[in-house]
Design a binder for these strands. Structure first.
Lengths: 154, 154
DNA sequence: TCGAGATAGTTACGAGATGTAATTAATATC
DNA sequence: GATATTAATTACATCTCGTAACTATCTCGA
C-alpha cells in the first residue's frame, strides 16, 4: 500500500507519474548532447521541415510563439539551427538545421529511440500500439473545449 | 500532415502531448475549487491517510520535501489542512484534513473523476485498463536506474 | 497610394513545478 | 552527554508555459 491508492484510480495521475519518469530519463539521455526534451523536439521538427517559420513551428509543437524565441536563440547559439530572413516576407525567418545540427540530431534521435524502447519494456508491440492510440485519443479529447463536430443551433 | 510526424514515433512525445492536455483540463476543472492538480493530490492523500508526516507524503507523491512546504502552507492558509505537532516526535507534524477540506475534497474528487472520464472518452473499459497497466509499467521502468530484478554477476 | 488592420517575431513579466544545499530543532545512538 | 541522524524549513536556481504589449512588415480596401 503506497498511500496514493486514492489517486491511482485516475488515469491523469498515472499519466503524470509515468510522464515524470519519462521526462527525467530522456533529459538524462539528452544531456550529453547538450539537449533537453524540448530542444530536441524543436531541432527534430526543423530538421524534418526545412524552411519552417517560427509561427508554424509553435503551432506544430503546441507551444506559444514567445516560448520558442529563447529555445531558438539557444539552438542558434549552439550552431545547430539557422534563422534566415524569408525573401517573400521580411518579417519571418526560415528555420534550418546546420550540418552540425543534423549530425547531432541524428545521434540524439538514436539515443532517444533507445530510451523510448527502454521505457516501454515489458509491453508487447500490440500494447505499445494500443498505448499510442490511447494517447492520441486523449489528446483529441483535450483539444476542442467540449463538443467536437456538433452543431448546437442553426 | 501535422509536421511533427518525426516525433510521433516516440511514446514519450505522445505522452507529453496527452499529459499537457490533461494538465490544462484538470487545472481548469479544479480552479473553481481553488485547487490545482498538485494541491488536489496532496489534499486527497492526506484525506486518505490522516496523521501522515510530511516526509511520508513527499515520498508517496514522489516530490521533494521542500516543495511540499509551500503547498501545505497554501492548503493550511485555506483552512483545508492542519499541521499538528506529533506527540511522539516534536520535529514532525501530523497532517489532517479539516471538515472544510473534507467537503471540498469530496466535491473536487467528483469533478476530477468526471474530467478523467471525459479525457478517456472513446476508449473502452478494456482500453482504459490497458492504459493504466501500461502507465504503471512505464513508471516502474523509470524508477530504478537500469536493471530491475536482475543479477548481472555473482 | 495611403492608412487601418493583420501578422511575424520579440520583449517583458509572472506563475507553477521541480531540484539542491544549507539551516534549525528535536531525536537517537553510543 | 557528545555525536550523528532526522523532520521541517529556508534560500536559491532552473525549466516550462502563458499573457500582454511592442516593433517591423505585409495586406487590403477606400
Amino acid at each position: 500500500m503506497s498511500g496514493d491508492s486514492i489517486l491511482r484510480v485516475f488515469m491523469g495521475y498515472d499519466m503524470k507519474r509515468a510522464f515524470a519518469a519519462i521526462q527525467t530519463d530522456v533529459n538524462a539521455v539528452l544531456a550529453p548532447f547538450g539537449l533537453r526534451m524540448l530542444t530536441f523536439s524543436v531541432l527534430s521538427v526543423i530538421r524534418d521541415n526545412p524552411g519552417l517559420r517560427q509561427t508554424q513551428l509553435a503551432e506544430i509543437l503546441a507551444i506559444e510563439r514567445p516560448n520558442l524565441v529563447l529555445i531558438l536563440d539557444e539552438l542558434e547559439g549552439l550552431d545547430l539551427v539557422t534563422r534566415t530572413r524569408a525573401r517573400d516576407d521580411r518579417r519571418a525567418y526560415e528555420l534550418k538545421v546546420t550540418l552540425k545540427g543534423r549530425r547531432l540530431a541524428e545521434r540524439a534521435f538514436t539515443a532517444v529511440a533507445e530510451h523510448d524502447d527502454r521505457m516501454a519494456r515489458g509491453l508487447s508491440d500490440e500494447e505499445r500500439a494500443a498505448l499510442h492510440r490511447a494517447l492520441r485519443q486523449i489528446q483529441s479529447n483535450g483539444r476542442s473545449s467540449d463538443d467536437a463536430g456538433q452543431v448546437s443551433r442553426p
